[in-house]
Amino acid sequence: MTIMEILEIVIPSAILSATPLILTALGGVFSERSGVVNIGLEGLMIIGAFIGAVFTILFEHIGLGAASPWLALLVAAIIGAAFSLLHAVASITFRADQVVSGVAINFLALGITVFLVKKLFAGSGQTPYIDHRINKIDVPLLHDIPIIGPLFFSNIAYTSYIAIILAFVVWYVLFKTSFGLRLRSVGEHPAAADTLGINVSRMRYLGVALSGALGGLGGAVYVVTIATNFGATTISGEGYLALAAMIFGKWNPLGAMGAALFFGFAQSLSIIGESIPFLKSIPDVYLLIAPYVLTILALAGFVGRADAPKASGVPYIKGQR
């Protein structure tokens, strides 16, 4: 196998497995930039994955065919946002410890979805498989470019392109619009933002709801492109990995995307590594733990310092200094 052939397998698969991470990490960026720590990304992905599977099956059932997964993605984003409001109410209005509330979100998501799966599918622990997954495409013209074409523009799911484009959109929204400035200001110095007439609570609710929508989308994308059904173990750790990507990307949408792509690369190497001669000799445990070790190193400042938004994790109480 030549290097080129290896890359032609590894890179498209890396992009595919990075896509849900990119979307969820972008959600994490919104939430944390507004000042709310969101350990609940895992739970939001679980909800999204559940909705993605159930609604794709439902839409297929009523004869929507190939449009089913797309509509299911939309529903997943909406339900994800709605579910994340629990975290918002607890941590913004009721000043709950945001980490604890996030942990509760994760518990709740897993409990409710598996409970519902058993209710909906006659006691079975997982949903049936979906018939229509989202297709992989070769981008016209671009995939004919030598070297880059086969690597980056062939055999890639639509959703992956959407995720990458969204990363740029989120970056633009956060850093080039007044909404983004306000969102970041309540995450850095809510008291100052409040003085300037920005509604801190509302901005934070928006931040969390956006993270819910993107987290839900991330989970659903995982189902309609990779897993194709939902069970208790469908999402196991992807949300935490997205959290790591967000931090490794220094709370920046583009950084988060880069980190997610890198994690996806490490993941697909660990899966495909078996069939690649020179990787066979490396135990796959190193590839499996690489994302986590790198995140820790990044935080410790060995890979450039990563600082959280200043007010992240602190409930804002009006009038308190």
Binding site: L86, F94, A96, F107, G111, V114
Partner: peptide
């Protein structure tokens, strides 16, 4: 799994 839901809700109430 209902038990997990109950446990999650208890954590929620304690946190809030």
């Amino acid at each position: 799994d209902l038990v997990q839901v109950i446990i999650a809700l208890i954590i929620f109430f304690v946190a809030s």
